[in-house]
């Protein structure tokens, strides 16, 4: 279970969120720009310090203002996949993948990761010679090989065209099952959210306005209106018989 209970004043926006997220499947932080989604996962990763609050993953406390605990990012074991990939441009794809090289039993092996993500043919290339989708798959592989306890993805498909997006979605979709690692993904795209999310936290103006499984938040007849933008969703957007991995 991931617990995030934080307050942080960022300019005019007060981020004040208290959510508990299941430690399986894909959880999506959904909301428009400025809702505080990225700030929230940055706080979880240790890249942004909350003013006060508590963050823990499976009982391991990352941050607690009362206890004065604030683990540095390298001790949190969060596999962070950035919107702008952030591959090291001076290293080959293989060296990027091996950058973290935490060798622990639980982690997927190099060959297994390369096979899962379909990037074997890219290993000798430099990141500058990769397409957006390829670079993002390499970034996922690099995070996977760092043996994380949780994946944090910040709009991983925002810079991709629909074709590259369709190429990447299956990889992200099978990631929690294949690796046993939960995923928290930030997106403002309803399409991505509905295709990938097991659990949704809807954010608006720095607050969590709704959370639950996709069915609970969006599919029940009384909740067919998006709690963020009040748009009405028709059934055609809903993946039929979607098997929820989160109870």
């Amino acid at each position: 279970m991931l617990e995030i209970n934080v307050r942080k004043q960022l300019g005019q926006t007060l981020i004040d969120v208290n959510v508990q997220i299941p430690s399986t499947g894909i959880t999506v932080f959904y909301g428009h720009s400025g809702a505080g989604k990225t700030s929230l996962i940055n706080m979880a990763a240790g890249l942004l310090t909350p003013d006060e609050g508590h963050i823990s993953v499976n009982g391991k406390v990352f941050f607690d203002s009362k206890e004065k605990i604030n683990l540095p990012p390298e001790q949190r074991k969060c596999g962070y996949i950035f919107q702008d990939k952030r591959l090291f441009p001076y290293l080959s794809v293989k060296k990027n993948l091996l950058f973290a090289s935490r060798k622990e039993e639980k982690s997927l092996g190099f060959d297994e990761t390369v096979r899962l993500l379909g990037i074997a043919h890219l290993l000798k290339r430099k990141p500058v010679f990769l397409s957006g989708g390829e670079a993002q798959r390499v970034a996922i592989g690099r995070a996977l090989l760092s043996n994380p306890e949780i994946f944090l993805m910040d709009e991983p498909m925002s810079s991709l065209d629909s074709e590259r997006k369709d190429e990447l979605i299956p990889f992200i979709g099978k990631l929690p099952m294949a690796s046993g690692i939960p995923v928290i993904m930030v997106t403002h795209s309803y399409d991505e959210m509905i295709r990938l999310a097991d659990y949704v936290v809807v954010l608006k103006g720095g607050k969590a306005v709704s959370c639950g499984t996709v069915n609970e938040v969006f599919h029940k007849p009384e909740k067919e209106i998006c709690p963020y933008c009040s748009a009405e969703f028709s059934k055609k957007f809903i993946v039929p018989n979607r098997r929820l991995r989160v109870s």
């Binding site: 890249l47 540095p72 973290a100 935490r102 995070a143």
Partner: peptide, 9 residues
């Protein structure tokens, strides 16, 4: 930042 999240001090 990316390196720190990948476990480097």
């Amino acid at each position: 930042e990316a390196a720190r999240t990948l476990g480097k001090t």
